[in-house]
Simulated assay, not measured.
Amino acid sequence: MKITAFYLIPIALLLAVPAHANLTVHPMRASVDGKRATQIRIYSQSTQPQYIQATLRRIVDPAGAEESEVEMEPSEAAIAVTPGKFALAGGGNRLIRVIPLQPVLQETAYRVYFEGVRGPEESSAPEGEGAQANIGVNLVWGALVNVLPRDGTVLPAVHGSTLRNDGTLRLGITSIADCVGNRCTAHDVSRSLYPGSSLQLPFTASPGHTVQLRYRLTSDGYREHVQTVTPSDI
């Protein structure tokens, strides 16, 4: 496997040359639940035809300090993107399907990149000043795709001053509160906590206190869940 990193999505260099792949991608975030495919639509923002290539990479330690992206063989991926390469008419759009290939044990993150490539006639054109004049800025769009396990579980746990996700679903944490009885002091948090990941609480957990979490799940969109957790070792 080869680990690669991508930094600006989309990547746009401010150069006075025409840009290939003038397109937009919607949605930029999608999910696959193991049974049903999801769809991403690519819209052309150009009057000229374009050739687009889709590439898939798995995200390692998503939303964590060591986040990186891994290239893999198609047989190793939990999902497939079809078509992987296509022509996009000027001003048109194209529907791309992301289909499940194999089940996952815990929620897994992938990135699908869409970028402009040379078309058949461009690939066969001789190199020279004319060919170089047509080479512009390559815009790359990356859509996040989360693959969900068939029977996902939510199991946050607090160990001392650390919140750990011991379940199999990503928790989109929006608030962590320190509670004594019904009296809570909330701290706004914006963090995705994937299975097996942990974060430091914004306060020191004390004996007799509980921790109230507000979070969202990938499959529920903006619906907020509330759960109270009792620290295990204070």
Rank of each mutant, 00 (worst) to 15 (best):
Glu66Gly: 06
Leu139Gly: 03
Ile42Val: 14
Gly152Asn: 05
Gly119Cys: 04
Thr174Ser: 03
Tyr7His: 13
Phe6Ile: 14
Arg191Asn: 04
Ser190Asn: 09
Phe203Gly: 03
Arg150Trp: 09
Asn165Ile: 02
Val98Pro: 07
Thr228Asn: 12
Ile96Pro: 07
Gly92Thr: 02
Arg183Ile: 03
Thr55Met: 11
Ser232Pro: 04
Thr174Asn: 01
Met28Pro: 05
Glu129Lys: 00
Leu155Gly: 04
Thr108Met: 01
Leu144Asp: 10
Glu129Trp: 01
Asn182Ser: 13
Pro103Gln: 05
Arg58Asn: 02
Thr230Val: 08
Ser190Lys: 11
Asp61Trp: 12
Ser46Gln: 11
Gln50Glu: 15
Leu105Gly: 14
Glu69Thr: 10
Gln212Asp: 15
Gln48Ile: 04
Leu144Thr: 13
Val147Glu: 08
Ile96Ala: 06
Val25Cys: 10
Glu66Thr: 07
Arg29Asn: 07
Pro18Gly: 04
Arg97Asp: 15
Ala89Phe: 00
Leu171His: 02
Leu148Pro: 07
Tyr215Ser: 03
Asp220His: 05
Ala5Asn: 15
Leu105Trp: 10
Met28His: 12
Tyr51Gly: 00
Ala205Lys: 02
Gly84Trp: 07
Ala157Val: 15
Arg216Asp: 06
Gly119Arg: 00
Gly142Val: 08
Arg57Glu: 06
Val25Glu: 09
Ser46Lys: 12
Ile234Asp: 08
His209Glu: 07
Asp151Thr: 06
Gln48Ser: 05
Asn182Cys: 01
Asn134Thr: 15
Leu88Asp: 04
Glu107Lys: 06
His159Arg: 12
Val189Lys: 01
Tyr110His: 08
Pro100His: 08
Ile52Arg: 04
Ala125Cys: 07
Asp188His: 09
Val32Asp: 05
Arg118Ser: 00
Pro10Glu: 13
Leu155Asn: 14
Pro231Asp: 06
Arg223Trp: 01
Phe203Ala: 04
Gln132Asn: 07
Gly152Pro: 08
Gly130Asp: 11
Tyr194Lys: 03
Leu13Trp: 10
Tyr113Gln: 04
Pro231Ile: 02
Ala30Ile: 03
Thr82Leu: 07
Arg41Asp: 01
Thr38Arg: 05
Arg223Met: 01
Cys179Thr: 14
Leu8Gln: 14
His225Asn: 09
Leu15Phe: 14
Glu66Tyr: 06
Lys35Glu: 13
Tyr222Gly: 05
Asp178Ser: 14
Gly34Leu: 02
Leu171Ile: 05
Val189Ala: 00
Val17Pro: 01
